[in-house]
Write a protein that binds this DNA or RNA. Sequence first.
RNA 1: CGGGGUGUAGCGCAGCCUGGUAGCGCACCUGCCUUGGGAGCAGGGGGCCGCUGGUUCGAAUCCAGUCACCCCGACCA
Length: 572
Amino acid sequence: MRYSQYLVNTLKETPADAEVLSHQLMLRTSMIRKVAAGIYSYLPFGLRSIRKVEQIVREEMDRAGAAELLMPMVVPAELWQESGRWSQYGKELLRLKDRKDADFCLGPTHEEVITDIARRELRSYRQLPINLYQIQTKFRDEIRPRFGLMRGREFIMKDAYSFDLDDAGADKAYEKMYQAYRRIFLRCGLNFRAVEADSGAIGGSFSHEFMVLAESGEDAIVSCDACEYAANVEKAELRKATSAAPSPSAALTRVETPARKTIEDVALFLDLPPARLVKTLIVVTDGGDTVAVLLRGDRELNDIKLKNRLGCDWVELADEETVLKVTGAPTGFAGPVGLKLRILADHEVATLGDFVVGANLKDHHLTGVNHGRDFAVEAFADLRQAVAGDPCPRCSGKLEVWRGIEVGHVFKLGTKYSKSLSATVLDEQGQERPLVMGCYGIGIGRTMAAAIEQNHDENGIIWPMPIAPFQVIVTLLNPNDEPVAAAAEALYGELLHAGIEVLFDDRDERPGSKFKDADLLGIPLRVTVGARGLKDGVLELQERRGGERTLVPVAEVATVVAERVRRSLQVG
RNA sequence: CGGGGUGUAGCGCAGCCUGGUAGCGCACCUGCCUUGGGAGCAGGGGGCCGCUGGUUCGAAUCCAGUCACCCCGACCA
């Protein structure tokens, strides 16, 4: 491709609304342009990389025995009503009506449609196992799209769905996908970890997330410093504390704590560490229950654990009015003593004695509080967020906390959708059996963004070869010098002939600008064609990563480049 | 949805407080000059100052509303 005929509009300055590096660099290299919040056009330079990622995904999915298909983006409401998600999914589901006033939605994921295909097409266990995937534009009306392609509303996703006769088969399919994902992200040049995750709204029994380690990541993950255990913090299990509470030594005492509403304020006021306080969160559920949750003062509630424990779809902190009604005090003074609510407590609370809680009375707290003696708890459970230093649930190691970008997610779904949509096959005995499903997603654009997050320097992007928009850039320094221009043209032709993806910077620009642009665009190899080298019969070959320069005789350049490209495309 | 912020040329910004015919840098176009790390000079094009309404002789500027975008939060009482 000739630069002079291509659409690349590099920006010297960073657009003000781009917060993270991958977003800034994608804008500065004109890979993407925003059309609306969370909705982008992919310009030619960006699309080339998107297509590379897609192609890698295709190759690895095909290698794992999956078959590509393509489902519609617009999905009739009936299918979603049948699965029950039309009413469950909430506002992220963009709903629309056609001219006949019939309901549709833009597919945020395609379990319904694929299961509909499966129930129509799959009749016999002999057709199993089967895995179908697509690479398609999804729409999720996110509360807060941000960070460019990292969290868009419209985005390209690879979603795969496996169908098996039984659990053992489904486990095998899951394992295959898990391995395919490892290869995919390795080929994309990513430093990632597969972590245990909550299966969330998609449903199903267990799942792993593929997390790319990056400061800008929106998710927190924990990993053990001694064993292989790694999990999303949402999921990270914490063992039941072993030590028992000390026997009560203090009397229950009410103290005045004027206007001290937060843990921090109360701790400071009473001159105690926050860990000696117990906070009482008043929570309401979608089922209409109001529940009190106790946590050590310096801990945070993990709402997913709470939801799972209560078996409900959502929990929410009660509003001021509700808190006043159930505790008799404004927010900030809730406590378990005398409280007429279900009380759940984190395991850790069981190890505490003589602690401080709210008095259910404005501007008062209780000290010397002990569970069992002063109040009863319905149950102790694992309800808090994991933090760095917590013990590993699997071994004697300690947990570390990282930021990560979720680029892929594999779920074992079980029969959730096959049952609600009646997708069955006949087994060997002629018995009707629901299909056992798995589903497997990869965010294509997010994978590309994550690759940029991990591969850049102060001058711009440093593409990993397999997903680079171009493999080589030929920088012609003197386009008006006939012999030099002719040599560059010849090289360009040779490289194209060798099947190399080459961007030929034939613009009539000054060398400085061309070098800066080449660095910003991050193409892995650069061949500089200038009068200086040419008079010695050599061209300069430079690696974008590391900056290593080699002088190569003109006649050998194409061969050397081809060899380097070939080498850097090999997996891991 | 709550809080904060910003809308002026493609991008980055000034002007607004104190109302008087819209500016700077980059980018873009023309010419000269220059050519191994974002050169220089000269000339030029491009704006319903987000939108609507109000105040005023007069509004980018003041007031009201509205829309869009960005950031933080939306669970830590």
